[in-house]
């Protein structure tokens, strides 16, 4: 996974492009995510079942795609980031070994009481350029937050 240097929030404006964040999910990661979410769907750990369903390998969980979008923002803006909204759609599957790249662009900024509120369009693509998960987030940094 890639990490970034946290930017000055005051310097972030509409049109600011996030540094790309990359992750290569592993079988271990899928196992742990299924375990902690108590998700027993075989598509995430049973390779033979996944192949019968028409996939080349077990699949990255829907929610893990969303979590990767969140992680890209945390890597950029820091652990103290507060999420107000987060959304994504699962458009294409990913399997262990895929290199997933999360990119994003700030589309709106509000400054209120020392807080910086950013609305950000996000996209997760695989190594072939296929869009796996488009998303959007509204996040807050700085100030006294909830």
């Amino acid at each position: 996974m890639t990490t970034n240097i946290t930017p000055d929030p005051a310097a972030i404006v509409p049109g600011t492009v996030l540094p790309e964040w990359r992750v290569r999910p592993t079988n271990l990661q899928l196992f742990r995510f299924s375990a902690v979410t108590w998700n027993a769907h075989r598509i995430h750990y049973d390779q033979e079942y996944a192949r019968v369903e028409g996939y080349p390998n077990v699949l990255v969980q829907s929610h893990l795609h969303g979590a990767f979008l969140a992680e890209a923002l945390v890597a950029w803006l820091g652990q103290d980031l507060l999420f107000r909204e987060l959304s994504w759609r699962n458009k294409h599957y990913a399997v262990p070994g895929d290199e997933l790249t999360v990119s994003g662009t700030v589309v709106a900024v509000e400054r209120e009481a020392g807080e910086h509120v950013f609305e950000i369009d996000l996209a997760e693509h695989n190594q072939g350029g296929t869009l796996c998960a488009p998303g959007r987030a509204v996040v807050v940094t700085g100030g006294a937050r909830r």
Binding site: H41, I43, H63, N90
Partner: peptide
Amino acid sequence: PDGLGPDDTHGLPVDEVRVMGAGQEIVV
């Protein structure tokens, strides 16, 4: 057969079909 339990689909009556998640919109 797919590994899901009867309560894993939030009470949806989907026992006979294949179910997959397609995304979320959350407000914190």
